[in-house]
Design a protein around this nucleic acid. Structure first.
Length: 781
RNA sequence: UGCCCAGUAGCUCAAUUGGCAGAGCAUCUGAUUCUGGUUCAGAAGGUUGAUGGUUCGAGUCCAUCCUGGGCAACCA
């Protein structure tokens, strides 16, 4: 039971971690500026909602710590697909979700002049050129993922010529496709994106906002970073598929911006888009369903579109709380629809007054009652929700119950109505079934039976209480209505994953229409009130089809149902076994394909490798890693020459130094072989522990310095003195009686906790081996 | 076959930056209940993708491999 409106502590995620750190470092002063940048070429869906909640959520949550903004920006740089209709629908969707962009509404199309100017800057720097290859040729020249590209013959045009051509492109002197403007980066880059990406193309097309004033339009990779920079965005959040594009994003900003502005330029961070089981999320597939009439428009309640969800009756609160639940990560995932349904129920449980409605009516006649009784009184709210809102519920001789709630031949655990059985009618009498009337086809047509007049208030004087309670609606007073029950749109969890066309997996039963009766008090509730039809789920009136004469209710979500006849438990077990099987398979493969490091070495490296392995006794792995890099070999040999033990040196180079020097060659680090040898010496002589050594290494790799001096200034000299250590160990144990208790009770993993405490107190300088021995002695009691 | 990204419970995520592997959802019990709902209590579920290494100590650091995804639009 969470109140989604409450300012609950926001879950942290990796993007918030970055923002926290940036705030701490003052990277953008105290500004945190995000943006939601849709292209107005389609309707928004729950995946967009995740992005909206992320971006606007950051604006809201950091408002107390920082100067925050969140822009709504239309990324309208492609005139062929965009329109005002989409702009308006997107604004409406964002507003409906409950977010306010205030005065920060922007359009990329307002920046066309600036994009042009930035392009001129690049040309003048010799970093962009007009290419006159046609589309097919450009593709050809780009190469493939395995082969480098080749330079366009136009790549080396003069700045003047480029400037002239680019100006004339804008003037409209050329046809579509005759020329493009490209960045001059690297046609051989292993990153395809960096093989001279296109910046501008000619498109004689009418733009929905700029009309015909432009005939060249910028590409995403050029426009987007500049849009962010123009608006002073600090954190530009997008989905994972733009990961590769980040390289151009950075390149554009670093080369277009004034050097003074580069330091606090925007940065792009990617997160996984949201996928749900049993539905599809891509604009293209959604469009296909709409256009082919598989669903009833963009706001069909079965669709995961914002308008579909709105029409279905799902609230913004539920969507937001769901988005918070799934979090923000870089792991691609598909969330079980059950998780979403939970958020919807959790939200509605406290918002929806209860009423009774029968969806699939079966008539019941009471034989021991002739005239109408006064209406029963019932609270719209169940006892566990602390609200009172009474309404009259008329009861009469004839009423309807749910067809499902009666079985002629009930299974063992069936607790509802059956021949000879008594049940409680919700808010009213106990009823006993005495007769079953069959129709011509043999199906049950009517139930007859008696009420116990003593049980009008739902209790019996003799204290008996039926096992089951069922809902009902008076036949004389019930209002007929149409119920639309929605189920998952597809019948497999990942309709868009396999080889087959996703449309083959459409679920025939995704919409079931039933005609039932609802209690008359529904008329006293606001038309847009979400209600719970007891035992049937949450409903509300369809906003477009429901009228006073013909009520239409959408089922927002059914109630959780513990009485299901099919069980998913087998499925779960199967999944576990499948995962286990897969793991075993992968293990075999990964062992079988283990690579021999030495294979890729050239002749010189191989010499070194053999020497390290055979003469110095290094493991083949270590020997190959060091031999494979000149900088590592030089350092390694230099320290060994100074008398350091080869294995020790290798360990530290491979396992510790490599982590710090992934990108930079070690000879560019601010320390030399002497420093490193001295450090290793301190470690070899037990002057510092290995963790102390690591600290020293970090310092000298960062800023250089004498290891010995650092050891002293940071107080890292290893404590071997047993008495001194014992004192520390004893205090630690004494200070944590509860953990000690648990350790003695069998939670041996706590040694790590205690060791951590000891290391903290001694700033990492305790001799770990001795400390551990003493600790174990002490904990043994 | 190049480059990039990601692998923690069935699903979605945590894990104080090298120190007790946890939570929500789903599942299964039990209690409460005039909703087979809600709420509460509990259980089960893990070789942290694998193998080796570093370390007193590895989900976290190093190496290799495996699996999945992305990149060769004048789309975004």
């Amino acid at each position: 039971m969470t109140d989604s409106n409450a300012p609950t502590s926001e879950p942290s995620n990796y993007i918030r971690d970055i923002i926290d750190e940036d705030l701490k470092q003052g990277r953008h002063g105290d500004r945190v500026v995000t943006r939601f940048p849709p292209e107005p070429n389609g309707y928004l869906h729950i995946g967009h909602a995740k992005s909206i909640v992320l971006n606007f959520g950051i604006k809201r949550d950091y408002a107390d710590r920082a100067d925050t903004r969140c822009h709504l920006r239309f990324d309208d740089t492609n005139p062929e697909t965009e329109s005002v209709e989409y702009v308006e629908s997107i604004k409406e969707a964002v507003r409906w979700l409950g977010y306010d962009w205030e005065e920060h509404l922007y359009h990329a199309s307002d920046y066309f002049e600036q994009f042009y100017d930035f392009a001129v800057v690049l040309i003048e720097k010799g970093l962009a050129y007009v290419d006159s290859l046609d589309e097919a040729e450009i593709r050809e020249y780009r190469g493939t993922v395995n082969e480098p590209g080749t330079a366009s013959p136009y790549r080396d045009r003069s700045v003047e010529e480029n400037l002239d051509l680019f100006r004339r492109m804008r003037e409209g002197e050329f046809e579509d496709g005759e020329h493009v403007l490209r960045a001059k980066i690297d046609m051989a880059s292993p990153h395809m994106i960096l093989r001279d990406p296109l910046l501008f193309r000619i498109k004689h097309a009418h733009h929905y906002r700029r009309g015909d004033s432009w005939c060249i339009y910028p590409m995403y990779d050029f426009a987007h970073p500049l849009e962010d920079a123009i608006e002073d965005v600090t954190h530009s959040l997008c989905t994972l598929e733009f990961d590769n594009n980040r390289r151009v994003y950075d390149w554009v900003l670093e080369n277009c911006l004034d050097p003074d502005d580069v330091d606090d330029r925007p940065h792009q961070y990617e997160f996984a888009r949201l996928n749900l089981t049993y539905t599809v999320m891509s604009k293209r597939k959604l469009l296909q369903l709409v256009e082919e009439g598989e669903v009833d428009g963009w706001d069909d309640p079965r669709l995961p579109t914002i308008f579909g969800m709105r029409r279905r009756g799902i609230t913004p609160d539920a969507i937001k709380s769901f988005c918070r639940d799934v979090g923000v990560t870089r792991t691609e995932s598909r969330v079980e629809i059950a998780q979403f349904e939970h958020a919807i129920r959790d939200d509605l449980n406290e918002k929806a007054p209860r009423v009774m409605a029968v969806l699939d009516p079966l008539k019941v006649v009471v034989t021991n009652m002739d005239e109408e009784t006064a209406p029963l009184e019932a609270n719209h709210w169940p006892r566990d929700i602390d609200r009172e809102q009474m309404r009259p519920v008329p009861f009469s001789k004839e009423f309807y119950i749910e067809r499902d709630d009666f079985r002629e031949d009930p299974p063992e655990d069936f607790i509802r109505l059956a021949p000879g059985r008594e049940v409680r009618l919700r808010y009213g009498y106990f009823f006993t079934c005495e007769e079953v009337v069959h129709g011509a086809d043999g199906s049950v047509a009517e139930i007859r039976g008696t009420i116990d007049p003593e049980t009008r208030d739902g209790t019996a004087p003799d204290g008996r209480s039926p096992r089951g309670t069922i809902h009902w609606v008076s036949a004389d007073h019930g209002i007929p209505f149409e119920a639309r029950l929605y189920d998952r749109l597809f019948d497999i969890p990942a309709p868009d994953a396999g080889e087959t066309d996703f449309r083959e997996h459409l679920n025939d039963g995704s919409l079931v229409v039933q005609n039932g009766y609802v209690e008359p008090s529904i008329r006293d509730l606001p038309k847009d009130q979400r209600v719970q039809f007891e035992r049937n789920g949450y409903f509300w009136q369809d906003p477009s089809d429901s009228t006073d004469d013909h009520l239409v209710f959408n089922q927002i979500v059914p109630l959780r149902d513990a009485w299901t006849e099919d069980d998913d438990t087998i499925d779960l077990e199967e999944k576990r076994r499948e995962k286990e099987r897969q793991k075993r398979l992968n293990r075999e493969k990964s062992i079988a394909n283990k690579k021999d490091h030495a294979e890729t070495l050239d002749a010189d490296e191989r010499d070194r490798f053999v020497r390290y392995r055979d003469e110095l006794g290094l493991s083949p792995d270590d020997a190959a890693i060091i031999a494979g890099r000149d900088d590592l070999s030089d350092l390694f040999e230099a320290v060994v020459d100074r008398g350091t033990d080869a294995q020790l040196a290798a360990n530290w180079i491979v396992n510790e130094l490599l982590a710090l020097a992934k990108a930079t060659p070690v000879d560019e680090l601010p320390f030399d072989a002497d420093d490193f040898a001295r450090l290793l010496n301190l470690i070899a002589e037990d002057e510092v522990s290995s963790s102390g050594g690591r600290t020293v290494l970090e310092v000298i790799a960062e800023q250089g310095g004498d290891p010995e001096a650092i050891v002293d200034s940071k107080n890292l000299r290893q404590i071997d003195d047993t008495d001194k250590l014992r004192a520390v160990v004893q205090t630690v144990v004494k200070d944590h009686p509860e953990e000690t208790e648990r350790y003695r009770g069998g939670k041996k993993g706590l040694v790590g906790f205690f060791m951590g405490q000891i290391m903290q107190r001694t700033q990492g300088s305790a001799n770990p081996e001795t400390a551990r021995e003493l600790l174990q002695e002490e904990l043994a009691g």
